[in-house]
Design a protein around this nucleic acid. Sequence first.
DNA 1: TATAAGCGCAAGCATTCACTTGCGCAATAC
DNA 2: GTATTGCGCAAGTGAATGCTTGCGCTTATA
Lengths: 124, 124
Amino acid sequence: MLALIFASTYLHNMKARRDVYQAIADPTRRAIIRMIAAQPHNVNSIAEKFDVSRQAISLQVKILTDCGLIIIKQRGRDRFCEAQLDQLSEVSAWVGQYRRHWETKLDDLEAYLKKLKKEKYGKQ
Amino acid sequence: MLALIFASTYLHNMKARRDVYQAIADPTRRAIIRMIAAQPHNVNSIAEKFDVSRQAISLQVKILTDCGLIIIKQRGRDRFCEAQLDQLSEVSAWVGQYRRHWETKLDDLEAYLKKLKKEKYGKQ
DNA sequence: TATAAGCGCAAGCATTCACTTGCGCAATAC
DNA sequence: GTATTGCGCAAGTGAATGCTTGCGCTTATA
């Protein structure tokens, strides 16, 4: 009896933290985004492209839907997934604030070339 | 004896899939990146800013180091963490390819406003 | 009407994650 | 010297993740 009580306290699919960063962390989900960004697909036609079960893809689609990256348009028995990538702007903004960190090297190179040029042509 | 053999097959901290997307999925890691991007910190001074144990932060630092987002410069007993965010350009590129998906609405709005303006002022 | 297709729900399972505590080691401070 | 500080390593834990299989519902097709 106690076992039953304890078992019931276990919530299997508890609402987890799901933000955009988390959503795009999984390569399968990125692949799904890639697919439906090019063209809407129903769940099964997505699943056909992967070698996991249909349910696995269905769950990934649910996750992407939950965090608003895709929207479902029901048509008959088909559920067409369309990309709704507004949320990606957040990621873009976050990454963008560090742009100088990875462009520094290019800047350095540019400055170096400029200096080189100056030395070659102008002397001042 | 068998138990020993089986026990030894269990690798506790097995090398997991760790790419940039995974690395930035965790809010704590993003916060760490934010900190050391502004200024290098040693591990303890990072840990002081969070209400988790020092080891927890140490592990996060290790993850970030493993996937190349930060580099460690040892100085005496201190280990200074510096940002090395080149890898973020990959994320930027990935997100960037969908830019039109979230800018469409702005474009639509712009077109709508233009149309509105036209109707108001020009009639053609 | 019977069969098939598209799909979600629910339960179970192995792995990974993020965290903890305890320990030890090297570098610095007293 | 001894004490303290900075830090990694190792083991353990609960929760989350990603997957599976089985079932049943609804919609389309034969």
